[in-house]
Design a protein around this nucleic acid. Structure first.
Length: 269
DNA sequence: CTAAAATCCTGGTGGC
DNA sequence: TGCCACCAGGATTTTA
């Protein structure tokens, strides 16, 4: 499941191949993948030039010319890559943007959760979620004030994208472990040292994962090598790298959650 | 207001 | 080996 590092890696991979190219035709193979509906979506995209790509959390932002923004979310199993226009589209292709110069941007998505949006006001849309975890807007003072006063558990809060955008199940577990905080800890009860520690570890882990090209697992994401760096995720029953205790796996807010029962303990306010 | 549960989707898996 | 129920998981929607 692509999270911020995998999305960043995707952007860095495809940008040189598609930037400043023009969309000459588009094909939608799964009608629910786009908004508005396919015919209108295709008509709006045709003859637009791609100026550049950026990111907000897990959203990929396509800057187009004449001025227009397209948002794309990979969700669970989405992948974006470039192939030659003459090549046959892959099995799970849900959308294809054919570019001048003989390249095609392929949106592949086995589970069909991914989405592409054309919105009147993308800035307003992105304001509904928190700042990107690696953007200058995500400061430790902001993080501190966002945690104080909440009654939510820290992991569901980090997953919600409401406070900060970009963390998913993998990196939330990894950041909580690195900061020695229990995922079910009441976020409002965290002290200043814990909050700053978690803030620092979130940024450090995301940046390290980007450097490794993201985390690969299943056949869904064949990106990078960060899975060798994972301390707790999918390591239930194995030894904690810090203390040797057995890593536990529990369900928290419907999500599988991995942690060390000795290093990460729940603390009352 | 918060929070949990259902929803979408399909390949992989565990049980029998 | 074959069948099938169930699981994973991000974000939105619905229900409590």
């Amino acid at each position: 499941m692509p999270e911020l590092p995998e999305v960043q890696f995707t952007i860095e991979n495809i940008t040189p191949q598609i930037s400043s190219n023009t969309i000459v035709a588009a094909a939608i193979l799964h009608s629910k993948v786009c908004q508005p509906e396919p015919a209108q979506f295709i008509e709006i995209l045709e003859n637009r030039r791609i100026i550049g790509l950026s990111r907000h959390g897990k959203w990929i932002i396509f800057q187009l010319e004449p001025p227009l923004t397209m948002l794309l979310h990979l969700r669970m199993s989405g992948r974006l890559f470039v192939q030659n226009t003459q090549d046959v589209l892959p099995k799970y292709c849900v959308a294809a943007l054919h570019l001048d110069g003989g390249h095609t941007l392929v949106f592949s998505d086995m589970r069909k959760f991914g989405r592409m949006l054309l919105l009147e006001n993308t800035a307003d849309f992105l304001k509904k979620i928190g700042p990107d975890a690696l953007s200058p807007a995500f400061t430790k003072e902001y993080f501190y004030s966002g945690l104080k006063g909440t009654r939510q558990k820290i992991k569901p809060l980090l997953l919600s994208q409401r406070l900060v955008a970009g963390l998913g199940n993998i990196y939330t577990d990894e950041a909580c472990f690195a900061a020695a905080i229990h995922p079910a800890q009441n976020a409002g009860a965290l002290n200043t040292a814990e909050i700053y520690r978690l803030y620092f570890e979130i940024k450090r882990i995301l940046q390290a994962a980007i450097a490794f090209g993201g985390t690969s697992f299943d056949a869904v994401w064949a990106g990078g090598g960060y899975q060798k760096q994972l301390q707790v995720f999918h390591r239930q029953g194995k030894a904690c790298p810090r203390c040797g205790s057995k890593i536990e796996k529990i369900k928290l807010a419907g999500r599988s959650t991995h942690f060390c029962p000795k290093c990460q303990k729940i603390r009352e306010a």
